[in-house]
Design a protein around this nucleic acid. Structure first.
Ligand SMILES: NC(=O)c1ccc[n+]([C@@H]2O[C@H](COP(=O)([O-])OP(=O)(O)OC[C@H]3O[C@@H](n4cnc5c(N)ncnc54)[C@H](O)[C@@H]3O)[C@@H](O)[C@H]2O)c1
Ligand SMILES: NC(=O)c1ccc[n+]([C@@H]2O[C@H](COP(=O)([O-])OP(=O)(O)OC[C@H]3O[C@@H](n4cnc5c(N)ncnc54)[C@H](O)[C@@H]3O)[C@@H](O)[C@H]2O)c1
Lengths: 210, 210
DNA sequence: ACAAATTTGTTAATTTTTTAACAATGTCCC
DNA sequence: GGGACATTGTTAAAAAATTAACAAATTTGT
């Protein structure tokens, strides 16, 4: 599709920011934006914006700038968001429930296509209009709907076990919210989100000025 | 305190991982660990572990390794976690509620010291044993308890407004969960956590194999 | 039509981060 | 006590990412 030799990890995150700004600009009826404006709005340098885009092609016009809608569409395609993605969540606790109801996912093309848990108390209940199902049904559902994405929101002690079940079922991309390192086989993309660590980043830097 | 010339941003995140492993090792009664073992458990290279630590001092013994408890204590000190930190949360919605109840924060030294919202329906209710208070009371509470850390869990449209209130009150480190760029003055550390973007990282990489 | 002003895409330079290499130090075993 | 082995701290090399610079393309004003 696009040349994907070696894209800096951070570029992907910035593309998300750019796309959000571009969508807003388009909705305001703006017909051209410069790398300067994109940079200002997203907190990076104009050179960075152009460099990031250059990995994937030429999307602007010299002397003019970019068309927001057009560039937005390109970026969404680069990110793989020119389609909708079903996502399963394992762990219907507080975090799992919050994520299940998060409208921001749907806005970016992600549909919650299943919530699983082991707690008999929770199975059968609904979060929004999705019923919590036992983990035993996970594989069937993943296969039936060719689901590729999963979110792990179970306690740390169960995270690896859940990841293994997901991988066996055919999940190819996983976000793990449990504060523990889990391993996945080649070909499965894993991302850990450690919220306590985010706070620690702050305290580390506050410490600098002591 | 420590020399802090220029520490890679990623180092801070890795220190969190190391510390978690070291705590476990210590609790198992293990008396020495090597950079090799730390690396294996946290998914990095041994050289990386030693380099990360070298920014801050010498914590091991050549030919031997590190004492888990000792190194754990050092790292916690480096991260600024040799004390407890009160944290306020603004936005008592689904995410704010989940975060308020998250035991993982307390385990790392963070205490939820206030939850604020504007919704009259929510003010006065309790999450766990903390009462949701109106945002108007934020400044008073922050000043009274010298609170330095805040979490923003309000809709994107209100994020900047809330950040401004926090900064005015004296908050020095902020985590923003709203999918929007907000700005803070010099001297305030800001971190954005964009969960949709995490999923997009996955779809981007899944796209590679198409 | 042409000069001045913009703004991109791309290449080069710089900076930052990671990885590798190895001398210094310590343990273990005979 | 000495040689084989292990493991750190540190320096050097390599790789990756960011920033800067500038030629090419476009628009605007005269
Ligand atoms: N609550 C937060 O704000 C928050 C923030 C960051 C990280 N986390 C992490 O996310 C995870 C979930 O946190 P939480 O607060 O929602 O916890 P929780 O205890 O409220 O929910 C965990 C859920 O997982 C289910 N579960 C346990 N083992 C399971 C298994 N093997 N298969 C399927 N489901 C299983 C439990 O029944 C429960 O419903 C934890 O690892 C936590 O550290 C939570
Ligand atoms: N729910 C999730 O899992 C999730 C995940 C990632 C990011 N987010 C982001 O976190 C934020 C909160 O999400 P949510 O799902 O909890 O939304 P929510 O609507 O459930 O809660 C938002 C809360 O903020 C309060 N609020 C609004 N304006 C305020 C103001 N000016 N001052 C104080 N409080 C105010 C509202 O009264 C409400 O209680 C959003 O920006 C969302 O995009 C949510």
């Amino acid at each position: 599709m696009f040349k994907k030799f070696k894209i800096p990890e951070a570029t992907v995150g910035r593309l998300t920011s750019y796309s959000r700004f571009l969508k807003e600009a388009d909705e305001k009826g703006i017909s051209t934006v410069s790398s300067q404006q994109i940079a200002k709005a997203t907190g990076v340098t104009p050179a960075q914006v152009r460099k990031d885009l250059a990995y994937f092609g030429e999307f602007g016009t010299r002397g003019v700038g970019y068309n927001p809608r057009e560039l937005y569409n390109y970026i969404m395609k680069i990110l793989g968001l020119d389609r909708r993605w079903p996502v399963i969540i394992v762990g219907a606790g507080r975090l799992g429930a919050a994520l299940s109801m998060y409208r921001g996912f749907a806005e970016r093309g992600f549909d919650i296509a299943g919530i699983f848990d082991v707690d008999p108390e929770k199975i059968g209940r609904k979060i929004g209009d999705i019923e919590i199902r036992p983990v035993e049904e996970l594989a069937e559902r993943v296969k039936e709907h060719s689901i590729k994405l999963g979110i792990v929101a179970v306690p740390a002690a169960s995270a690896q076990e859940v990841v293994d079940i997901m991988v066996d079922a055919g999940i190819k991309g996983i976000i793990n919210f449990a504060p523990v390192n889990v391993s996945v086989p080649e070909g499965v993309v894993l991302r850990r989100v450690d919220l306590a660590s985010q706070l620690e980043y702050l305290t580390f830097h506050l410490g600098e000025s002591r």
